[in-house]
Design a protein around this nucleic acid. Structure first.
Lengths: 173, 173
DNA sequence: ACACTCATGTAAGCTGTTACATGATTAA
DNA sequence: TTAATCATGTAACAGCTTACATGAGTGT
């Protein structure tokens, strides 16, 4: 893709992962070239400005995979989680399940601490706190539901894969 | 509160609104003093380090209210919305409802565009895109449900307030 | 003639984090 | 004595946005 294409693509996902400004995107692309994680090919456009089409190199793919494998730990912000989700194709079923499970644990923890807070200030405490807590609990609950659903589907898929004899080393991990 | 107290309080809400590091918090407090939006009182602690207790001034309260009233517009990020929610006590019922409604509109728009994308790449497109879209749709849906619930409660409350004769200029906004 | 989309980029500046410094008190 | 919590702060740096510059084509 070209820088412009990347911007356009990410823009449509702004709500989930945000999108970079040209002031950060273009310098990053130059850095990637410098580190040989990507290459460019200048395509002179007919009836339009020439475009620089970037392609990922083997080294780039490797670096990406390392990023995917590595930062499994820590309090992944939502953005990081969704980006992993978008790149789910690069995961084995097992490690995808591990990622989902990890997120599930984190969100469950957050919900638990919100619930504790709610119990702590039980009763007629400020409208604001109650609203914010209710909101947080609703979102956390919904996310847990979705994650459980996705995990369920994954394990069912792994099961049927096994039955069909194509069993890789997936299943429970 | 003291800077340390503020940090501790915000830390428990990290998931919803994030929390600042000391490197940003303390300079901000100094700025607030400079602009006379807050005052300090140094309380020498018995058996513990002395603490600087900050209090908001009238000017500070006014600036806060202006912030609350003002930034109703634009694509409020989640953080801004939750902060308003936490300070809901400072809103009239009508303007609180307006805030919720505005958020509702925004989230509805986001969900609509995600749905469009989902239809656009219908079928066997990458697992990743499907997962991320499903995730986004689930979260957006849950948020809309919560917002509708809260809006419903608010309007019911406004109705009963009116019936009880305590009718302020609330209701539909 | 004006504005808008395509397409790339630079420079200045704001905001925030990381990492450190300080210093007292309490628990292992 | 080593680490941890309480409590405040600074300095260097990383990351990102804003605003601008450039330039061609397309529509009103």
């Amino acid at each position: 893709m070209s820088g412009y294409d990347i911007k356009r693509t990410l823009k449509s996902l702004t709500w989930l992962i945000g999108s970079p400004s040209s002031g950060s995107l273009y310098p990053i692309l130059r850095t990637l070239l410098h580190e040989e994680l990507a290459t460019v090919e200048i395509v002179p456009g007919v009836d339009r400005p020439p475009r620089k089409i970037y392609s990922i190199t083997d080294a780039g793919r490797q670096a990406l995979q390392e990023w995917l494998d590595q930062s499994v730990v820590a309090n992944t912000p939502l953005k990081g989680f969704v980006m992993r989700l978008l790149l789910a194709d690069r995961f084995s079923t097992a490690s995808l399940a591990a990622h989902l499970q990890q997120r599930r644990d984190q969100v469950a923890g957050q919900r638990a601490s919100l619930q504790e807070m709610a119990v702590g200030l039980e009763g007629g405490t400020g409208l604001g706190q109650n609203l914010a807590l209710g909101y947080g609990l609703a979102l956390a609950g919904a996310e847990l539901t979705w994650l459980d659903g996705a995990l369920g589907e994954l394990s069912r898929q792994a099961m049927s894969d096994k039955e069909a004899g194509r069993g890789s080393t997936a299943s429970t991990a």
